[in-house]
């Protein structure tokens, strides 16, 4: 069977990827613009990066965002992995339909609804809005994404390895930690990274649940963008894009290396 790329295929790939990457590329290029006018090129300069690091409020928001993302992604990874195990290894337990519904719904639910409903819940139980409410909200949303990522791995791997360990007398917990966990580890890492970036990125849910004490970077960026384009936001965006790109590339390399090691 030979699949050949026609001219049409190549053209649509080139145009498609140009469409996906050109806007990001332009944003990065213009973050090195000397001019204060964001869309007029005035020569190369790194002055906006300096201005960014001197911007106390922005730096503080970045630190809050990072802490929330780390904490909520960790919680979401644990909860999501448990949920994935429940969906793949427990057969038909009571309330399974409701459970799958609750796992899939938050992923497609408009963020305004999720944000509003969690806020009203926190007000009802009298929890002050701030760091913790955003963390809990992000954990709830992102654990569903972790579940799907880990679940698809649990479904494809060879169950006979687990059965062999059990037959040889390993108790279920030991089987899980020495057979299942190493096999699904790459998908757990991928789930964690996904949860982390979703939390770093979220504007809507964070806006509903943020209090006076905790403002996240997306909320800060959004309020600046509403006032007009600013070269500082371009610089901040470029740094974020850089971090994400490095993270994704290293995660890909890591999982590739572990595959290679296993093959030897």
């Amino acid at each position: 069977m030979n699949r050949r790329l026609s001219l049409f295929n190549v053209t649509s790939l080139v145009i498609g990827f140009a469409f996906l990457y050109l806007p990001i590329l332009l944003l990065v290029i213009y973050s090195f613009n000397a001019s204060r006018l964001v869309t007029v090129w005035g020569g190369f300069s790194t002055q906006w990066y300096g201005a960014l690091f001197r911007n106390q409020a922005l730096m503080e928001a970045a630190w809050v965002t990072l802490r929330i993302a780390l904490l909520s992604a960790t919680l979401a990874t644990v909860l999501g992995t448990l949920a994935a195990l429940a969906l793949t290894r427990y057969g038909r337990f009571p309330g399974r339909t409701l459970f799958t519904g609750m796992v899939y719904a938050p992923m497609v639910m408009p963020e305004v609804i999720t944000g509003l409903s969690l806020l009203l819940f926190f007000v009802a139980i009298d929890l002050d809005r701030g760091f913790w409410t955003i963390t809990l909200a992000h954990t709830t949303l992102t654990m569903c994404f972790v579940t799907v990522v880990v679940q698809s791995r649990l479904m494809t791997f060879d169950r006979s390895l687990e059965e062999a360990a059990m037959d040889l007398g390993a108790p279920p917990l030991r089987t899980f930690f020495s057979v299942t966990l190493p096999l699904i580890a790459p998908s757990i890492v991928a789930g964690f990274l996904l949860a982390f970036t979703l939390s770093m990125d979220d504007l809507v849910i964070a806006s509903f649940n943020a209090g006076p004490g905790a403002t996240t970077l997306p909320i800060k960026i959004y309020s600046q963008v509403r006032l007009g384009l600013s070269p500082e936001v371009n610089a901040a965006s470029t740094i974020l894009i850089g971090i994400v790109t490095l993270g994704v590339i290293s995660a890909t390399l890591l999982s590739k290396r572990s595959v290679l090691r296993k093959a030897h």
Binding site: F17, L20, Y21, P23, I24, L26, L27, Y30, V38, T39, T197, M200, D201, L203, P218, I221, Y222, V225, L229, V233, S237, L240, I241, V244, T245, G247, V248
Partner: peptide
């Protein structure tokens, strides 16, 4: 390559279009 832009901030990608 299709997934990578999804990992970069949604807000930033929309902001890029304003310029």
């Amino acid at each position: 390559l299709v997934i990578l832009p999804f990992w970069t901030s949604f807000l930033i990608r929309i902001y890029a279009w304003v310029a």
